[in-house]
């Protein structure tokens, strides 16, 4: 997969005040077919820096329609956000990948991005994914905070990853293994000997 930007705006979750403006309900819908494709495309084209061809969108929404979600403003039926993902084998692990996450600017800070991406991650987890990854621009504070709250770590920095020359972080979320594996292991005696006076370790 070529580079994909995840632009999650706002990022302060539900705490951001919406002023006096009335907030409509948001309806979340799983990808329902070709009629949703232009909505997804126009949102992503508008908000993300990377160019995608129609083939890229089709690759995702045809193979993993269950991982694509759309958010609609219930008052006027306008599509205000979307998430596009995939999953598959990657170096011996079954891995989910968040390709695109977009929420229109006026709708940011209402937890819509969190809700969209949480829905996708849930499906990934239920489908047996061991981990989820994505890339985000290092400057995209909103996205980084959002994914940080969901348990993602910044695993790598990718130098000039995007066409616009900006670095990316590769973010990773590891799911807990159902089998705890080895029992808790204490540090061997050999280490204890060396730092007897330390209260730590």
């Amino acid at each position: 997969m070529s580079s994909a930007a995840a632009s999650a705006g706002g990022g302060s979750g539900s705490e951001v005040s919406g002023g006096t403006e009335e907030r409509g309900e948001i309806a979340y819908v799983s990808y329902g077919g070709e009629q949703h494709l232009p909505l997804v495309m126009s949102l992503v084209d508008e908000e993300l820096s990377e160019p995608y061809s129609i083939f890229t969108y089709r690759y995702f929404v045809y193979l993993w329609p269950q991982l694509t979600f759309l958010a609609f403003d219930a008052t006027d039926g306008k599509c205000v956000g979307t998430v596009v993902c995939k999953m598959g084998e990657h170096r011996g692990a079954f891995r989910g990948y968040i390709a695109m996450l977009v929420v229109l600017k006026p709708y940011r800070g209402r937890g819509i991005a969190t809700e969209l991406v949480t829905r996708s991650i849930r499906v990934m987890m239920d489908s047996g994914c061991e981990e989820v990854t994505l890339e985000a621009e290092v400057t995209n504070k909103g996205a980084l905070a959002l994914y940080g709250r969901l348990g993602f770590i910044r695993a790598k920095r990718l130098y000039r990853y995007y066409l616009n020359g900006v670095d990316a972080f590769r973010l990773k979320l590891l799911f807990p293994r159902p089998d705890p594996g080895l029992p808790p292991m204490m540090i061997g005696n050999d280490t204890d000997d060396q730092k007897m006076d330390s209260p730590y370790l």
Binding site: I153, A155, L174, F175, P176, L182, P184, M185
Partner: peptide, 29 residues
């Protein structure tokens, strides 16, 4: 909601843990 500190630990130090640098170190330590 999706994982715990243990998973973060394992991810950050994955390469060190695999290379046993140092030995006998785990999240539990």
């Amino acid at each position: 909601i999706f994982n715990t500190e243990q998973e973060r630990f394992m991810q950050h130090f994955d390469l060190l843990l695999k290379a046993r640098v140092p030995e006998h170190i785990s999240f539990y330590s």
